[in-house]
Design a protein around this nucleic acid. Structure first.
Length: 214
DNA sequence: CATGGGATTGACT
DNA sequence: GTCAATCCCATGC
């Protein structure tokens, strides 16, 4: 058993945290999954809720690093983020997809679906699968009940693909979506696969676009 | 106080 | 591919 990531992990550039969280584990009760897709949001770009400044809705985003920011999307879904960077900086990593690890039957019951790839392959799906509701907004990701654990020892560091964020209209060009290359558990639309990623990387060798793994 | 726009999903054509 | 469901809240009159 490893202990949850501490606030210092989140007290870094939100893009660095978004990359670092891929491969870690999100756990709530008996259910957990490996994070395979994230997106970074920062107050300096218009797609971030914190762009409008400090309001009742965004107050969590300006709170302590390592806090959960949970909000309702499209009136229906709860989406979960990890608050990053220092106090007074509005930034967070949206957790978009998980590879289911434990508590599979409970996830299947909550999702009313059986297929492993249908349980957590989207930001609204994974909150339903793990029973993450708005009541967890502003809770600590270190002390729980919702926790983020380090990458399991038996897991290799995943190769990452960087692509554009999903479902936004502003600042859509930033390549701040990070996913495990070739994973079957990422959300739609799928980012470029590992082969396409390697080809694109070779074609633009030398260009700094934050798309490499490591 | 009224309005409109979402960091989505699933059902249907 | 298209579209409705459904709620919070920021914005504007």
């Amino acid at each position: 058993m490893s202990s949850p990531l501490r606030p210092a992990f989140y007290d870094r550039s939100v893009v660095a945290v978004a990359r670092g969280l891929v491969g870690c584990v999100l756990q709530h009760g008996d259910s957990s999954g490996l994070i395979v897709e994230t997106e970074a949001y920062h107050q300096t770009e218009a797609a971030c809720h914190a762009y409008v400044g400090l309001t009742a809705r965004t107050s969590t985003l300006f709170g302590a690093p390592g806090t959960a920011y949970v909000y309702r999307s499209y009136g229906i879904h709860a989406l979960v983020n990890a608050v990053c960077e220092g106090h007074d900086v509005g930034a967070a990593v949206l957790i978009r997809a998980l590879e289911p690890l434990t508590g599979l039957d409970a996830m299947r019951a909550r999702r009313r679906r059986d297929g492993l790839e249908e349980l957590c392959s989207g930001p609204g799906k994974l909150t339903q699968a793990l029973a993450i509701g708005l009541e967890l907004n502003a809770s600590s990701l270190q002390t729980g009940p919702l926790r983020v654990l380090p990458r399991p020892d038996d897991r290799l560091q995943p190769a990452l693909v960087a692509s554009e964020r999903i479902g936004i209209s502003k600042a859509a060009e930033l390549p701040w979506r990070f996913s495990v290359a070739g994973s079957r558990y990422v959300s739609r639309p799928r980012p470029p696969g590992r082969a396409a990623w390697a080809a694109a990387r070779a074609a633009s060798a030398g260009r700094a676009d934050g798309s490499t793994g490591s």
